[in-house]
């Protein structure tokens, strides 16, 4: 019972881990390159989600200091970090997609297995 309540309290862990596993699994097992890139984004997002969730405190406010007020505020650092993380993830995605375009042009396919077959014919 205790386990269940701990899980429901920290449900965002569970969601993040499920997303992470989905992402990793898809990335490693699917042969379609676009799917790999999408999976990569799912994986990254799961980590971002977890990271942002860590910074959240129940009933807290944005960290803006007002005169004399003694308030509970959420940790702003994870959010700031994740903005950077998202930028990085976007650039990796853009780069990956541009490679896929080039691969499509030279191989005529974006399926890893087919490319393997093509290469073994070389």
């Amino acid at each position: 019972m205790e386990t269940v309540s701990r899980l429901t309290e920290n449900y965002f862990y569970l969601v993040a881990i499920i997303l992470f596993v989905i992402g990793t699994h898809t990335m490693l097992t699917h042969s379609n390159m676009i799917k790999k890139v999408i999976a990569m984004n799912i994986m990254d997002s799961s980590v971002f989600l977890l990271f942002v969730a860590i910074g959240y405190t129940h009933g807290a406010q944005a960290p803006i200091i007002r005169d004399g007020a003694d308030i509970v505020y959420a940790n702003p650092l994870p959010g700031a970090l994740i903005v950077t993380g998202i930028v990085v993830a976007v650039s990796v995605t853009a780069y990956a997609l541009s490679i896929i375009v080039k691969i499509q042009r030279s191989y005529g396919t974006i399926d890893c297995d087919e490319i393997c077959e093509l290469r073994s014919d070389d």
């Binding site: 992470f20 992402g23 990793t24 990335m27 490693l28 390159m33 790999k36 990569m40 994986m43 990254d44 799961s46 980590v47 977890l50 990271f51 993380g85 990796v92 780069y95 990956a96 490679i99 896929i100 080039k102 691969i103 030279s106 191989y107 490319i115 290469r119």
Partner: peptide, 23 residues
């Protein structure tokens, strides 16, 4: 073409690596 394919494989593997690192 082999560079493109090798580069993509490298990119995916290292994206997995950085994903794990960030987690």
């Amino acid at each position: 073409r082999e560079c493109l394919e090798a580069g993509f494989k490298y990119l995916i593997m290292s994206a997995m690596g950085t994903g794990c690192f960030l987690l």
